[in-house]
């Protein structure tokens, strides 16, 4: 049983004009096995929340705390956060030319497990995870994210999540740019990992579409850098109907 606790998180970015505040006091607790949908209009700070928890150097924490099972996450380096059990599925996964998917996955698994996975079982593990996500085995010889279609990139993110077995995963607009078939495959992958590993999930999305495949336990509406309303799945239905207009200052 794991618990990610975000308390009064305040985050800014350094600009030429000084510090620009983006997150203005976020409170959120995610337990193993729970799905929390974070929904909000563009520019509300959803991605900033995801990236600051993962430790992206662009963002400066100006206040508040983030702990995983009581341990201070904000003090950790980016790789230490992953080792602690956090995973960020990125909206725009980064291309790393010349580094094969196979090499990347194995290096990551080695770092997280503290020893290199045994070749024979590892190859089987990767193959099986790839086939579940309907990925061509030839995929593992390609350079990380280079020339991948939008759908391939997102499948590759979920593949990593499946293999790296985090405790808490943040999915940043994993649904964006996916057609219905890809959305279904990716969602099934998320649900599978959740069921197998009792994963806690922060599901960041602009649309309610993905929530038909991944059922949220809680829905949080994000606007102006903080959570402005919370509820159960029914809140998502209301958003679907009325949109975000009521949360955005004219």
């Amino acid at each position: 049983m794991s618990q990610l606790v975000i308390k009064d998180l305040q985050v800014g970015v350094e600009t030429e004009a000084g510090m620009t505040e983006i997150l203005r006091g976020v409170d959120l607790t995610i337990n193993s096995g729970e799905v929390h949908a974070i929904m909000g209009p563009n520019g509300s700070g959803k991605s900033t929340l995801a990236y600051s928890i993962a430790g992206h150097p662009k963002y400066t924490i100006t206040g508040g705390t983030v702990t995983l099972d009581g341990v201070d996450v904000l003090e950790m380096s980016v790789d230490e956060r992953a080792k602690a059990g956090l995973f960020l599925a990125m909206q725009y996964p980064v291309e790393v030319p010349g580094v094969s998917v196979a090499n990347f996955l194995r290096t990551a698994a080695t770092a997280l497990r503290g020893e290199a996975p045994k070749v024979r079982t590892w190859v089987g593990e990767v193959k099986e995870a790839m086939s579940k996500l309907a990925m061509d085995p030839a995929f593992s010889e390609r350079s990380v994210n280079e020339g991948f279609s939008g759908g391939e990139k997102k499948r590759h993110e979920i593949l990593q999540m499946e293999l790296l077995k985090p405790k808490i995963a943040i999915l940043d607009e994993t649904d964006s740019g996916l057609d219905v078939d890809a959305l279904r495959i990716v969602s099934e992958g998320v649900n599978r990992v959740k069921a197998e590993q009792n994963l806690g999930i922060m599901l960041i999305t602009h649309y309610t579409r993905i929530l038909r495949y991944i059922k949220p336990d809680f829905v949080h509406v994000f606007a102006g850098g903080k959570i402005v309303e919370e509820g159960g799945p029914e809140l998502a239905d209301r958003l679907e109907e009325k949109g975000y207009a009521q949360y955005v200052k004219a």
Binding site: A54, G55, H56, P57, S77, V78, D79, R81, A82, K83, F87, L88, M90, P93, V94, E95, V96, P97, G98, V99, N103, F104, T107, A108, A111, L112, S143, Q160, L164
Partner: peptide
């Protein structure tokens, strides 16, 4: 830096991440 962040966010330490990127650069 985005490449480094991506690799490190998967648990790969900074020095290993840099090595991977440089090796990748020269691989072809």
């Amino acid at each position: 830096d985005e490449q480094l962040f991506y690799l490190m966010s998967r648990g790969i330490p900074m020095a290993d991440a840099r090595r991977l990127v440089i090796r990748g650069f020269f691989t072809e």
